[in-house]
């Protein structure tokens, strides 16, 4: 059984995948895009990400590179909450709506969000 990939552009390099999963690339692109449109400066982002990595390490994450985009996403969520008023609760709620959409979409069809 295969899960259709909502994002099929898994980047590779000579050593294999640079992103382990498509969501990592998507999270990467979101931050670059928001920076490009002026929501935050790049060094502001670098500082937020470094802070997130630091607190994860203090909480016991061995930080071997495989959790990098988890930190990236967490930092991005906080940044967006501050700068664009998109709150964590909204993201969690929307994530559940997406989950329902997947579950209600016949396999092989495009998954679309149907707002209630």
């Amino acid at each position: 059984m295969t899960v259709p990939n909502p994002f099929d552009l898994q980047p590779k390099d000579s050593e294999g995948l640079v992103f382990r999963e498509p969501w990592e690339a998507q999270a990467f692109a979101l931050a670059v895009s928001l920076h490009q449109s002026g929501l935050f400066a790049w060094d502001e982002w670098a500082a937020a990400l470094a802070e997130e990595i630091k607190s994860a390490q203090q909480a016991g994450d061995p930080d071997l590179g495989n959790t990098y985009y988890t930190h990236w996403l967490r930092a991005l969520e906080k940044m967006v909450a501050r700068k664009a008023a998109v709150k964590g609760e909204c993201i969690a709620e929307r994530a559940e709506e997406w989950r329902d959409a997947y579950l209600q979409t016949p396999h092989g069809e495009a998954v679309e969000l149907v707002r209630k």
């Binding site: 969501w23 996403l73 991005l76 967006v80 929307r94 994530a95 979409t105 396999h107």
Partner: peptide, 20 residues
């Protein structure tokens, strides 16, 4: 008759993207 949802982090990214 459904599509398996991606894992939680992937759903969060999708959620964030659609909100933005």
């Amino acid at each position: 008759d459904h599509t398996d949802p991606p894992d939680d982090l992937a759903l969060r990214v999708k959620a964030l993207e659609s909100l933005l």
